[in-house]
Structures are given as structure tokens and as C-alpha cells.
Write a protein that binds this DNA or RNA. Structure first.
Lengths: 290, 290
DNA sequence: GCAAATACACGCGTTTTTGCACGAAGGTCG
DNA sequence: CGACCTTCGTGCAAAAACGCGTGTATTTGC
């Protein structure tokens, strides 16, 4: 008569992943165990939940109903874990931060060092990705993001105003300076596949030479002298082998924010990290604008 | 990192019951297991959840937070089980009905017999109680209730209009008839502790002799000739050793309803039971009014 | 048309979880 | 003040759950 809640979670995972192995991996258990739990919950509820086939378990209508309620339970679990994280007074344990790779590698790395020295009991976990992680699902405790506002229902603090500008390898920079009317090759980001707006009329001839989907590769190409890139000012300045070129005058760009879920935001560990982070940003804010 | 949902339920039960043994009984597990699970979830979450003392486990603030979220999960579980019950097309398995004891013993018993003969695959479970069971928590699938409306958010169908009247043992009835002006002793229900209103002026002298908290005992007392009772008409007529006395003319009384949760209501088993029930009530509705 | 890959089913040995019996501590009542 | 009741903690054996290896069916790719 009594149904195990963990079995409901197993159903949810199987509905999501369609295969025993996939669900097992998501739960960090063997797929055989998934199969056993499914059989158990099926007999317990008195409903067939999946049609077994050679290419996986196909959920029945009943399974979808189970899954949707298990999803509510999962939401409650995340709510709970965030709340507990928020009231945790310890300055020890794990703290997960996410930020764009390039922001970490070319600017934030010293913050990590400082924080680790100041709070050696806290194990810092860094997720360096351009993906927008789901802070509601506790994929990270705090996120450092480049955007116009915190977004969603998140709490946020603006760390830095920033501008972007045009950069190129020194050789190319010299060539542009010596012949402003010559054709200027641009390396642009896939998402905005045109020559930037607002180019100084001194340089009338511009074209897109390459479109990239990855900023790291773009910087490499620019370093190799393949063209001019528009990047945030801190980044162009921080990358060796690039110099600013006056083709594109500095323009306002999305700001740098630290954001977090309201539940997690007040936690001691998050507060401690923000303190170190804010101090560091204040100290180096000149890097971000002209 | 991963927290077992069943452990959260265990925390919920311990917060509710305060003692390991109580929580264990509620979960049908040994109390040592409760203690072990609590320890496990405490280390898993990194929060102390209970203060151990000789008279039980006292929840901390963190435990209350866990419990409140586990309560949401429990609600989801009940939602789920009702939904599944509602879409269950089987005419087999268990069906739980609740009704007031006296309604069952003096009127509904034949329905149970008929239903069991018509649907032998369905195991009928009867909760004969005057308590209002929580259909949301699936304490019963259907309830037969004496009330003015279905109540809550429940679906309902009015089965019978009924009236009540005054009954007494034959000896007492004869005495009342022979001497209408003599003092008439009443046996009344605790909840309404006065002589009923609307008594025929032919019988001017009335007093409360006993107040009871239990209807079965009241009937016994009336059978023994201790006084006059006001009861639903079907009941006075069905009980051996009582006859109607004209002291209190028949009055409208709360009706008989069958009610159920909207999720469970459309289930095949519930539908089948209602069919038998309604037919039986139609056939015998004359018993309930004058 | 055949081989590789993928996915499930089943049986066996191991690990984990659970229940039970016993003992200690604190509170209650005569 | 002492017997009794309730409650929790611990050690041990039984039971349940689990992971692994093997076998089979079906799909995919060449």
C-alpha cells in the first residue's frame, strides 16, 4: 500500500531518459536497479507504467502522470536544498561558482586565489562555461554574468560597467594606421554576423572575413593576424599579442553582474565570496572602460 | 550530494510524531531505522535536524524547513494516488467506503452484500465511523454522509431526503398516549443538549433526562424505556423495540449524500459502487420520510 | 546481408539496509 | 525512595537491495 518516494523519482528519470541505462546514470545507480524499481512501483500502484521495447521503455499515460507529480516533488527538493543552503552559517563545505570561461581566465582567476587563501575551509567549485546554468536547480550557487540585468527572479549586483573596442595583432594594427582606406578584415561572432556598427569613418572599407562560434578561437585568429575583432575592452587588453585599433571607438557593452537565487543569496559562503569579488572588481574597474 | 526522498519523508514523520517509535510506526518500519535515516540525512544535508533528548527528538529550525517541503512532496504523492485511482479502469482491487456506523448497520448493509455479489473481484473496505475522513488524503474513496451539502471541494450526489421524529419503547409510548400531560423524559445528543423544538402542544411537559455522546447508547437507553429520542426516521423504524411517538412531528433533517474527491469520482470502481447504491436508495427512500 | 552497437532480461555473489534483543538514561507515580 | 514506563543507543544476524557478468533481441551502419 505504501509507495517509496525514491521509486517515483526513478519513474521520473526513466520518463526523462527513455532508457534504463540513461535513468540509471542520472541517478548514479545500475540500470538493473532501475528496472527492478520500476517493476516494484508498477505492482505497487497497480498500473503498467512502461511498454518495454528493444529501443527503451516507452512511458504510458499513467507514467506521465506519475512523472509530472514526481516533478513537483523534485521542485520541492530543490526549494528545500536552496533554503538550507541559504541558512547555512558555516564557512566550510562546497561553494559552486559559474562564470564565462574568458572572464575567469583573463580576469577572475586572482579572485579565486584570494578567496581560497581567505577561506581555506571552503571548497570552491568553478563551472567555467558560457551556458546559463539554472540556479533554481542549484547547478551553481552564484553566477557571474555579462548581461543588462540579473534576469529571471534572481537577485543581482552590478560589479562592473564595461565597454568593447576593436583589437588586432600589432602587424595588422600598424598596417591599418599606415593605410586607413585599405580593406579591413573582420572576425565576427556567429550570433551577430555583420561588421559592427559605429565604425570610425576614417576607415571606410570593412568586410567580414570569418564568422566564428567561439570567442577563444576568434582571439587566436586575431592574434595570428587574420583580422580585427570586437571584444570587451578588458579582454583585448588582457590577451597577449593584441593591441587596440581605433577602427571602432569604445562602445558601452553589457555589464558584469554577480547573480544568485534569493534563497541562496544570503548564505554566509555566498556573502563571503561576494565580498572578495566586489573588492577585487572595484580595484580593477579601470580595465573595463576607456 | 544526492539526498534520498524517503529520508525526507522520514524527517517529516519524525517532526510530526516527535519520537523515533512514533515515526517508525507511522512508516511501518523499526524505530532504529528511523534513527539511522535521520543520521544519514543530517550528514547528507550538513545540518543538525534534531536535538536528542530522553523524551524524544526535538526538531531544529532546519528540520522544520525540511518537514514543510516534505509536506509538499507528500501532497504531491496524494494528488498522484488520487489521479491514478481516478483513471484506473479495473473493476478489481480495493475500494474503500466510509459511512456513519448506524447508517451502515441499519440501512446500507444490503448494499454491501449486493455490491460484493455483483463485483466479487473488488475487495470492499468499510470504515464505519462518524468521523469525517479526509478524502483528499485518500483515507476513503467514497463517503456516505449526512449533511446539507457535499462540502469542501468534493463532488457529491444527494441520495435521500430524510426526516427525523421521536421514538420510544412501546411501554413508554402507550403511557404517553394515555396521559399526554404527564412529564416526558428525553434522551438527547450532547451536541444539541436541549429538548427538541417543535414539540406538539398536546404534550406540554418535557424535560431532558440524559445527555449522551453516542447514538448507539442512546438507542439502547430508549429501548430500555429510559426516555424518548429524536432520531432519523429510518433509524427509529429500523431499530427493534422502538415505536414512533407523536410527541415530535416529523421534521426535515440533513440529507444523505454520497461524496468523493473529483479525482477519484470518475473511477470505474467508484462508479460501479454508486450505481448499486443509488438503485438501492431509490428503492427504499420511503423509509426516510413520513 | 552481415557485423557492431544498443538495450533489455536473468542469475549469482556481494553490499547495504533492516529488524530484533539487550542495556542505559531520564521521567513518573505510588 | 524505588519500581515502572518510555525513550534512545548499540551489536548482531537476517533480509532486502544492489552491481556485475552473461545471454538475447532489435536497430544501425557499411
Amino acid at each position: 500500500m505504501n509507495i517509496a518516494w525514491d521509486d517515483l523519482r526513478t519513474v521520473l528519470m526513466l520518463v526523462r531518459h527513455q532508457t534504463l541505462a540513461g535513468a540509471g546514470a542520472a541517478l548514479s545507480i545500475n540500470y538493473t536497479t532501475v528496472a527492478r524499481r520500476i517493476r516494484r512501483v508498477e505492482t505497487g500502484l497497480g498500473h503498467l507504467l512502461f511498454e518495454r521495447s528493444a529501443d527503451g521503455y516507452r512511458p504510458t499515460e499513467a507514467a506521465r502522470i506519475v512523472a509530472s507529480h514526481a516533478e513537483n516533488m523534485e521542485t520541492s527538493e530543490f526549494d528545500l536544498r536552496r533554503k538550507l543552503q541559504g541558512i547555512n552559517p558555516e564557512l566550510s563545505g562546497c561553494l559552486t561558482i559559474t562564470a564565462p570561461q574568458l572572464l575567469i581566465s583573463h580576469f577572475l582567476a586572482p579572485v579565486l586565489d584570494q578567496f581560497d587563501r581567505a577561506f581555506p575551509q571552503i571548497e570552491l567549485r568553478i563551472l567555467a562555461t558560457n551556458d546559463i546554468l539554472d540556479l533554481t536547480r542549484l547547478e551553481a550557487d552564484l553566477a557571474i554574468r555579462i548581461s543588462r540585468n540579473p534576469g529571471d527572479m534572481l537577485k543581482g549586483l552590478r560589479l562592473l560597467k564595461q565597454e568593447n573596442a576593436s583589437f588586432a595583432a600589432p602587424g595588422m594594427a600598424a598596417q591599418i594606421q599606415s593605410d586607413p582606406k585599405a580593406m579591413i578584415d573582420w572576425i565576427v561572432y556567429d550570433a551577430i554576423p555583420n561588421v559592427p556598427q559605429g565604425i570610425d569613418p576614417t576607415y571606410p572599407n570593412n568586410r567580414v572575413r570569418f564568422r566564428f562560434d567561439d570567442m577563444v578561437a576568434m582571439l587566436g585568429a586575431a592574434q595570428a593576424g587574420l583580422g580585427v575583432v570586437r571584444v570587451p575592452m578588458f579582454l583585448g587588453r588582457a590577451v597577449a599579442g593584441l593591441v587596440e585599433v581605433p577602427v571602432l571607438p569604445p562602445q558601452p557593452y553589457s555589464d558584469v553582474w554577480v547573480v544568485g537565487h534569493p534563497d541562496v543569496w544570503p548564505s554566509e559562503k555566498a556573502r563571503a565570496f561576494r565580498e572578495v569579488l566586489i573588492a577585487y572588481c572595484k580595484q580593477h574597474r579601470a580595465n573595463f572602460t576607456s
